[in-house]
């Protein structure tokens, strides 16, 4: 019968602990991917990693509709629609948040979900 504990066992424990630390490292970087998607007429025309944005800038995915992008957030800044609900939605900065300019058929949404699979409103 084998012994309860041998020198090699230390190596096993050490290896597992090191492996566990290695798997943990990506977690420190992971939270910094916030991907925003811009849809025009139902198709994705632009994907932006909001955390990698250094300087704020503006996009015009469709004539008359302006979208402003800053580090960690995105919003509608101008639209030709009458109600301007898209602009009133304000800044989107969390996963799953969406704003839409219905008359222009432009949708901005941040990929992924925090704790919810779908929102009811």
């Amino acid at each position: 019968m084998k012994k309860l504990f041998m020198r090699a066992d230390f190596i096993v424990i050490l290896t597992v602990i090191i492996l566990s630390i290695l798997l943990f490292i990506p977690n420190l970087f992971n939270n910094s991917t916030l991907t925003a998607q811009i849809y025009v007429d139902g198709e994705v025309v632009e994907e932006i990693n909001l955390q990698e944005v250094e300087k704020s800038y503006t996009l015009t995915p469709k004539n008359g509709t302006k979208i402003t992008v800053e580090k960690g957030k995105i919003c509608f800044s101008d639209a030709h629609c009458k109600d301007e609900l898209c602009i009133k939605s304000g800044w989107l900065s969390k996963k799953g948040q969406t704003a839409a300019c219905l008359p222009e058929r432009v949708v901005v949404s941040i990929k992924g979900t925090d704790k919810t699979d779908m929102m009811t409103y």
């Binding site: 989107l92 799953g96 704790k115 919810t116 699979d117 929102m119 009811t120 409103y121």
Partner: peptide, 11 residues
Amino acid sequence: NIGIVNPENDK
């Protein structure tokens, strides 16, 4: 998991 939107911010 269905999220009920917060009436205060609609977001």
